[in-house]
Design a protein around this nucleic acid. Sequence first.
DNA 1: GCAAGGTC
Length: 867
Amino acid sequence: MDLIITEKDNAARRISDILSGGSYDSERRAGVNVYRWGGTRCIGLSGHVVGVDFPAEYDDWRDVEPVELIDAPVQKRPTQENIVRALRLLAREADRVVVATDYDREGELIGKEAYELVREANEDVPVDRVRFSSITEREVTEAFDDPDDIDFDLAAAGEARQIIDLVWGAALTRFLSLSARQLGDDFISVGRVQGPTLKLIVDREREIQAFDPEEYWELFADLLKADDADGEAADDDAFEAQFFYEDDDGTEAERVWAEATAEAVYDVLREASSATVSSVRRRSRTDQPPAPFNTTQFIRAASSLGYSAQRAMSMAEDLYTAGYITYPRTDNTVYPEDLEERELLEELAADSRFGDDAETLLELDDLTPTEGDEETTDHPPIHPTGELPSASDLDDDEREVYELVVRRFYATVAPDAQWEHLRVVSEVAADGAGPDDGPLTLKSNGKRLVEEGYHAVYPYLSTNESYVPDVSEGEVLSVVDTAFEAKQTQPPRRYGQSRLIETMEEMGIGTKATRHDVIQKLYDRGYIESDPPRPTKLAEGVVEASERFADRIVSDEMTAQLEADMQAIARGEKDLEEVADESREILVSVFEGLTESREEVGDMLQESLKADKRLGPCPECGEDLLVRKSRHGSYFVGCDGYPDCEYTLPLPSTGKPLLLEEECEEHGLHHVKMLAGRKTFVHGCPQCKADEADDEADVVIGDCPECGESAARSAADGDGEAVEAEGGELAIKRLRSGARLVGCTRYPDCDYSLPLPRRGEIEVTDETCEEHDLPHLVVHTGDEDDEGDDEPWELGCPICNYREYQARQAGSELETIDGIGEKTAEKLKGAGIDDRASLKEAEPDDLAGQVDGVGPDTVRDWQAKAD
DNA sequence: GCAAGGTC
């Protein structure tokens, strides 16, 4: 039997389709897809199926000195048990194995890992390697006709990276966390990629902090052709001209840095009634269509549509899995030779939404696509596959992103655009009154799109024109308006996510598949917040401490050095041990400095952590109010002067608090945001929230079902335990933490309560729930800054509403487990499994028998994850 | 529980 191993299931299926001529079928082995035809089996891995780590005796952070990790052994262990098991089973039966993982360094390493697993199960089966950079019939068949061997040197280069990253990352992360006494979920991490990325953000913030704005002035005039001024044409045919001069270096400048000069110039300009054209320059500029999409450029384009890097990639992943676009993780910006542009356009022409533009392009004789600078072997650039989603297959966001990919492909085969630029310089006579002896010079830059070219099919880039009329030298123009604008230089802007990813790419850190994840990691670690990301004080502390004691971990030079070493390994000039040991030696010397300054580092980091928790002054004693964590694990605001000062304020019970830059004008406290995944919300000033709750009166809506009159009555009717009527009533209440609920007026003697949404105005209607004798509620949302009211939310009876909510929760609980989607959850429900507890109790074999397409191993996998 | 790299 021949066994083919690919990097992912999707590739396995497509390669099987090509090699079998469409005749393959599939089976499951250990819960993993295996494709088969004739005497051939094909299995897809899931990237790395083994991972590197230290032996278990190094697991306890407190028992092991971080420095000991430097010389600790590094092991490889299976991380995808099912796939490893399936691979071993197949390897035993194989007479020949072909490794067909991705054609890049990491693919070579994944292939070598597969090779080792195969070897363990089968000592002498021959193992070949095939390489192709796109899964097309031609490339795949050619590669399989002429197989090669695994490049063990290239794989070793990848292993060097694994070891060095683990050792540096783990040792330094543990050191920083231990020195700041931050264990558990709040550890302090550093690494070869996250370090420099974080420093990029922190450095920019430092520039912003240090920025000292400078004042300057700009002067403008609106000019009009003289014949227009006579009547017919209106003033809106006027065009703008800006004052400019030659600065000391002889370069053209518009900003005037001295107020007195600006005023002197303006005095002349304001009095002027005409300006004479002194030069007219016309240029035509060719505007070439953009290159094919690689991952970074795709993220950039999607971000200009308003999607975060993370979201854009997740949608691209879905579009790829569904078969509509090619693999979204690629560095390549050159289409493969055998991409048939014309055929692809013909397929796309069938789409109702953007098919017309494909038709237009098909009329062109030449469809030669643009090429970018990067030509790699990993995967083709991202382009549509030609398979069209139907209207119901995609949601609005996915459709928008899919259209972006389609239109980018259009653009790459579309013609150039042509612009005409027109620069007009005119002069206003100064008669010696201006700053210099000569006349004032004004310039106007006009541009006009003369050939729309690719913009017709790719509407995402600006095609704004600026109007400047046809004038000739010596022509006299009227000055119809003038403006004098005082401005300030602006600090540099924070990096947005996509700019950050582009900069990482330029610096050579991270990869196409990880850069957006790295940014997400910085959010998760509490290093950055908001979008565009702003660094927290902790981030500033970590970068500063690293710069002083372990500079390499925040410098891109570490990657540059590693990259050079990896190339040397790949060329056979160095070996893996040598490179790893050199790196370990450097780390040993880093640790000498660190160990000496352990306390100083700890103090620095602790001070930063505290700064991130500081809200502002305590109204009672003037010390700092801090975000604190109670013994029960909930957050609240407490005074740094405790126990002398016992002032506190509550915080919402959901999420982890994060202090925003914004401060409350009244109380001088930072606003608080509660991070809770999709339920993240801004709480605002906790003092204001508490005050608002104190001022808001409770609204009674009925009897308490536990201790009110009606509870006593229904108990007496015999459908409940005897209840003594205490006269409790249900009321809509606002708590000082900002939460809102329906609760008993006898609280805390009776703690009956039902949750209500935090936001929106609640209207108590006349309609009553027959079952619970409570009024129906309607929530009016609609932001203050939003125009008009959103559709009001008919919440109904609060008891019924809460029951429905709980039912929904139970249904979706399973979906929080990795690998269980909506459809699977639905199937499981059919088998009587509707929450984590029942899933864990289920007998894997029984359950697998009841649910289609699910094996006992998959069930065991879920059960492990459900813990 | 640490990294970064695959992939879902």
